[in-house]
Amino acid sequence: MSSITFFHYFAVACFLFVTGLFCILSKRNVIAVLLGVELVLNATNLNLVALGRFPGWQPQLAHEGQVLALFVIVLAATEAALALGIALCFYSLHRAPDLDEAQDLKG
């Protein structure tokens, strides 16, 4: 069977990234945007892990990819917690999870 190469990983990651980005750009709901962000992060993680798995292609990343992925997961968790908090505040402020309402810093 043809082995799974780095390209496969990369394709999946690209799909995830684009899906996440599309989610971010198209949704007005704050929660949905956060979901998109998570998707983008996971796509990144997948890339990192894949790079750790196939060091030949990018020899600098031997196992660092996995380690970095762990960091990203932790950061993502933190970010999720923080972002949810912000979303709650935002919701209580604007009575709607609509991101387009967030125009307080508009010039």
Partner: peptide, 17 residues
């Protein structure tokens, strides 16, 4: 330049992209 700053986050993000 002020007009660029619309306040729509997604627009910013789009532009960044």
């Amino acid at each position: 330049m002020r007009r660029v700053q619309t306040g729509f986050l997604r627009q910013y993000l789009m532009l960044a992209l």
